[in-house]
């Protein structure tokens, strides 16, 4: 199917770009660890374990924001996005390829963040890992679309957090809930529902965000 061939071609390009410039991923890694260290200093000693869970999710959110802020910078320079939009491929393929890239970056960042969290704060259970993996899908899907929106505006880096944060509040609820509550099934299910709804919505509407 040519659709997936197009996605593969675009994803390949994104990986190549990151390997060349090597700026986004290292920044995300450093940021997430720095954030965790800051949180250690910001939590009073009698803070509960659940408080530190909440802070982990905040760290992950802002690390995602950091990565997403860079998602379309290469396309913005030289207006390459116009070149991609003019190609006969479905515009949603651009979204899918970018989201997969963002997903990969988030995964790598979390591969560092979760062990660091276990080291600094407390052990990481399977529920947290499952919640993080599910949350990644929603964050990448919605974030990529919003990053493209912000890239089309004058305000760019200023706009992305404003658009992003209200939309991902449910992800935080699902993620923290799954980690903290006794039976995480409902929360994991909720995260899956969020992912489904917003991935479909993002996939279908990306066309209108990048083309007139």
């Amino acid at each position: 199917m040519t659709y997936f061939a197009d996605v593969a071609a675009l994803a390949r390009k994104d990986i190549l770009l990151e390997l060349r410039s090597r700026d986004t991923l290292p920044a995300m890694l450093l940021f997430v660890v720095s954030a965790l260290v800051v949180f250690h200093f910001s939590l009073p000693s009698d803070a509960s374990a659940t408080a530190s869970t909440g802070l982990l999710w905040i760290a992950l959110l802002f690390t995602a924001l950091l990565g997403l802020g860079r998602a379309f910078t290469a396309e913005r320079e030289q207006r390459v996005l116009d070149g991609l939009v003019l190609a006969p491929c479905d515009r949603s393929a651009i979204w899918l390829a970018k989201s997969l890239g963002v997903l990969a970056f988030l995964g790598v960042a979390e591969a560092l963040a979760l062990p660091a969290y276990a080291l600094f704060f407390e052990p990481v259970g399977w529920e947290l890992v499952a919640a993080v993996l599910l949350a990644n899908l929603g964050l990448a899907a919605v974030g990529t679309l919003l990053a493209a929106m912000a890239a089309a505006s004058r305000a760019r880096e200023l706009l992305l957090p404003l658009l992003f944060l209200p939309l991902v509040i449910p992800v935080v609820v699902g993620g923290v809930g799954a980690t903290v509550v006794d039976n995480p099934g409902r929360y994991l299910g909720f995260l899956a529902l969020y992912d489904l709804i917003f991935a479909i919505l993002s996939w279908a509407s990306f066309e209108y965000v990048v083309a007139e």
Binding site: A5, A9, K13, L17, Q78, V80, G83
Partner: peptide, 19 residues
């Protein structure tokens, strides 16, 4: 409309695939 961080060949490869 080409990526500055990619080579000339890689850019044309990409467009070749997309078209």
């Amino acid at each position: 409309l080409v990526y500055k961080e990619l080579t000339a060949l890689e850019n044309l490869e990409l467009y070749g695939r997309l078209y």
